[in-house]
Amino acid sequence: MDKEQIDKIVAKYHGEPSALIQILLDIQSENRWLPGEALQMVAEALDVPLTRIQHIATFYKAFSLVPKGRHEIHICMGTACHVRGASRVLDTVEGHTGIKPGETDLDMKFSLETVNCLGCCALGPVIEIDGKPHGRMAPAKALEVLKNYE
């Protein structure tokens, strides 16, 4: 991300320091992760300490300080999915991709995250890949779904 892009986002919020989280969300959604230089630029543009930005970027789940893979897998671990066996789905996906939640594989193919409720409880267990929900998952079915991604 270059300075111009960052300045544009900052300007959208009139350089208001209280909009820090909103600004980081916009950068995250445009760039899919928060590079260190971007954080430095935001700190200077808003005149807020880098410590505060670092805390926010690691405190909230929406932010990532490392680049993401081509496909983002979100496995719902909400209570409804949990009682319907979501952890068995997670185990299987972990085994297949070789990564744990929060990680990206070496080929940059998949990033894996657990989420706390996608609110599609009727379809549980649910996994979401690149924003598309796949419902009524079971370990073997989840592997079938993953095969469709390159």
């Binding site: 208001e16 209280s18 820090l20 989280i21 909103q22 980081l24 909230y60 789940k61 706390n116």
Partner: peptide, 18 residues
């Protein structure tokens, strides 16, 4: 931006402050 604790009133207000 994704933090369950922000459902708590004072935490939510701290988050609004950025």
């Amino acid at each position: 931006a994704g933090a369950f604790v922000c459902g708590e009133s004072s935490a939510l207000m701290t988050a609004i402050e950025g």
